[in-house]
């Protein structure tokens, strides 16, 4: 459905492979199908605390995508309420440890720290921008939503979504090319 909005959309599936990640370039439009995990600050804080205690994580991180989102409640008959991205930089301090464990992709909005980008290059990972505010549209691509950890956090619990053709744009690729840096100067006068 999204080809109508953009010249070229790459269809990708989760879990991601190193090869798929390597072939994604900043600026590519993508549509993602498969399972993805959600997490915001509170969930990240808990995951990192577990790592520091040397304990196992409640989810398998390797080759997965984490979506930074705190959705609205689902209406009856809906899989998920409106679910646009939240600001990613709040996750920055936690992200490199997860990338070291094999996390391959993140979906959010807004800038990332230097440390995150360096770790993405080191670990061959990609950062997708979802369109902030296009929350009802994005929710349409979420076909199933299950809480897999930290239920008590409500909308901030870790959910596992099954998504079909989730629309996003490769914002920072595994070589560190960054749309937030490269694009604005082209249109600045």
């Amino acid at each position: 459905m999204h080809t109508a909005y953009y010249m070229e959309i790459k269809k990708i599936n989760t879990p991601l492979t190193d090869e798929v990640v390597r072939n994604l370039k900043a600026g590519d439009g993508v549509s993602i199908t498969g399972y993805i995990y959600t997490g915001r600050d509170a969930a990240h804080r808990r995951l990192i605390a577990l790592l520091e205690e040397g304990k196992e994580l409640p989810i398998e991180i390797k080759n997965q995508i984490i979506y930074y989102v705190g959705p609205a409640p689902a209406k009856p008959g809906y899989n998920c309420g409106s679910a646009g991205p939240t600001t990613s930089h709040r996750m920055d301090t936690y992200t490199p440890s997860l990338l070291d464990l094999g996390l391959k992709g993140m979906i959010g909005k807004g800038l990332r720290s230097k440390e995150v980008i360096e770790s993405m290059i080191k670990n061959n990972a990609v950062y997708f921008a979802a369109i902030g505010g296009a929350a009802a549209l994005i929710a349409k691509s979420i076909k199933d939503s299950q809480v897999v950890a930290y239920e008590e956090l409500g909308p901030e619990a870790i959910h596992r979504y099954y998504v079909e053709y989730f629309p996003a744009i490769v914002c920072i690729d595994a070589r560190g090319n960054n749309l937030y840096e490269s694009e604005p100067p082209k249109y600045a006068k």
């Binding site: 609205a72 309420g81 409106s82 679910a83 929350a135 009802a136």
Partner: peptide, 14 residues
């Protein structure tokens, strides 16, 4: 997104 939220009474943004 505006169209969808209005038609189905969904929050424009979460």
């Amino acid at each position: 997104n505006y169209e969808l939220s209005a038609n189905e009474k969904l929050a424009i943004c979460q």
